[in-house]
Computed example of a mutant assay.
Amino acid sequence: MLRDNLRSLWTAPRPPDAPGRVWRDWALVAAALGSVLLEVTLREDVVWRPVAAVLGVWLAVLPLWRRTRPLAMVALAFGAVIALQAATLVAAPREPVGLNSSLVVLVLVYALPRWGSGREIVLGVLVILAAFAISVVTDDIPAGEGIAALVFLFMPAVIGASVRFWATAQERQLERMRSHERERLARELHDTVAHHVSAMVIRAQAGRVLAGADPAAAVEALEGVEEEGARTLEEMRLMVATLRDSGAGPELAPAAGVADLERLLRAPGARLRVDLGLDGDLDGLPPAVGAAVYRIVQESVTNAMRHAVDATEVMVRVTGEPQRVRVTVRDDGARVGRGRDGYGLAGLRERAALLGGELSAGPGTDRGWHVEAELPRGRANNGVHPRTRR
C-alpha cells in the first residue's frame, strides 16, 4: 500500500491550466526589489553587502516563473542559498549573510506543491531540506530553533498542498455534475429515439400488411416511416460522443418540456412571484431542446428562491425564433453573495454546450441575478422536414 501511494505521488501530473502572470506577480517582484533596495541602503549590519544585494535581487525575480517551472525555481533559489552557505564556510563572516527580503522564497515553497508534478515535488523538497540542513550546520542553530524554522519553512508548502487538494476536489465535483447532466440528457435522448423507432416499426408493419390490398395506403405508411426516420436522425445529431453510459436502465417517463413550465412555476407556497412569458414559435421543439429549456428555468428559478436577497419577483421569458430558442431568467434581488456559479449552473452550461448552444449567468447591471441561454432549434435533415402530427 505504501509503495503504491509513493508511486502515485511520483507519477502525479501537474495541475492543468496553470494561470499566467497577473498584476499581483509584478507587484510581488516590485515589493521584493524595493525591500532589497531599502535593506542594502539603510541597514548597517549587512555582511557582504554586494553579495547580499545580488542574492536578494536573484530571489526577488524567480517567483515570476513559479507556476510554470516550480522545480527549476526552487532549485535556482535554494541552490544559490547552498552556494552562499558553502562560501561562508570558507570565509567565515562574523554574521550570517543575506537580507530579510530573502523570505520571498516562501512563495516558491508554496508554489512547489501547488503547481508541481509529483516528481517535481519530491525533488524540490529534497533540495529545500538540503539547503536547510546546510544552513543549520553553518549558522550553528540550536535544535529547538531549527525545528521551529523547519516548521515555518514548510508551512507554505502545507498551504499550497491544501489549496491544490481543494481545487482538485472542486474540479471533481464539477465533473460529476457534468457527467450527471450528460447521463440525464442521454436518458432523455434515449426516450425520444425509442419512441420514434417504435413508431417506424409499427408503420412498416402496417405498410407490409397493406402492400397487396391498398398500395396507396402502403405508400402513405412508408412516408410515415420516412418522417419518423427524419425525426430520429435529427435527435441523434444532438448526441455527442462524450455522453457517458449511465450503467443503469433508462427511465422511460417522457421528459418535461416547455409545455410543463406553467405547472412548474405555479407551485403553491412559492416565496417569490414568478412572471412567465412564452413568446414566438415554441411548437415542435426537439424533445432534447424542450427538456433543456425546462431544466434551465427550473434550476434558475430554484436558485432565485434560495439565494435572491430582498427579491419580490422572478421574470422568466422563453422566446422561440426561427433558428433558436432564447431563455432569460431574472430576479430583482440585491447583488450580494452570488459571486460565482454553483454546480447546478455548471451542469446547465454543459448541457447547453452539448446541444450546440450557450448559457451565461451573472449579476445584473443594477439588481438581481440574470441567466440567459440560447439553444438551436435543430437542423433540417437533408431537406426532409417532419410534418407535425396529431
Rank of each mutant, 00 (worst) to 15 (best):
L6M: 13
D17M: 10
R21N: 11
W26H: 13
L37H: 08
L38D: 09
D45V: 05
V47G: 00
R49F: 03
V57P: 05
R67G: 02
R67C: 10
T68G: 01
L71Q: 05
A77I: 04
F78N: 10
T88P: 03
T88G: 01
E95F: 10
E95H: 11
S101A: 15
S101V: 02
V107I: 10
L112G: 08
R114C: 08
W115N: 06
G116V: 07
I121N: 07
I121D: 01
L126K: 00
I128S: 10
F132H: 13
F132T: 05
T138Q: 15
E145C: 04
A149I: 07
F152S: 10
F152A: 14
V158E: 10
G160C: 04
G160I: 07
R164I: 05
F165D: 10
F165C: 01
A167L: 14
R172V: 12
E175C: 00
M177S: 13
E181K: 02
R182D: 15
R182T: 07
A186E: 14
E188R: 12
S198D: 14
I202L: 14
G207K: 03
V209M: 11
L210T: 06
P215H: 06
A216W: 06
A221I: 00
A221Y: 01
G224V: 00
R237L: 14
R237Q: 13
G247Y: 12
A248N: 10
A259Y: 00
D260R: 06
E262L: 05
L264S: 04
A267P: 00
P268G: 07
P268H: 07
L272H: 14
D279A: 15
L285I: 04
A288F: 07
S300E: 11
M305L: 12
R317W: 05
R317C: 03
T319R: 15
P322R: 10
Q323E: 15
V329Y: 02
R335Q: 13
V336I: 14
E350I: 04
G362Q: 09
H370P: 00
H370T: 12
V371M: 05
R390F: 10
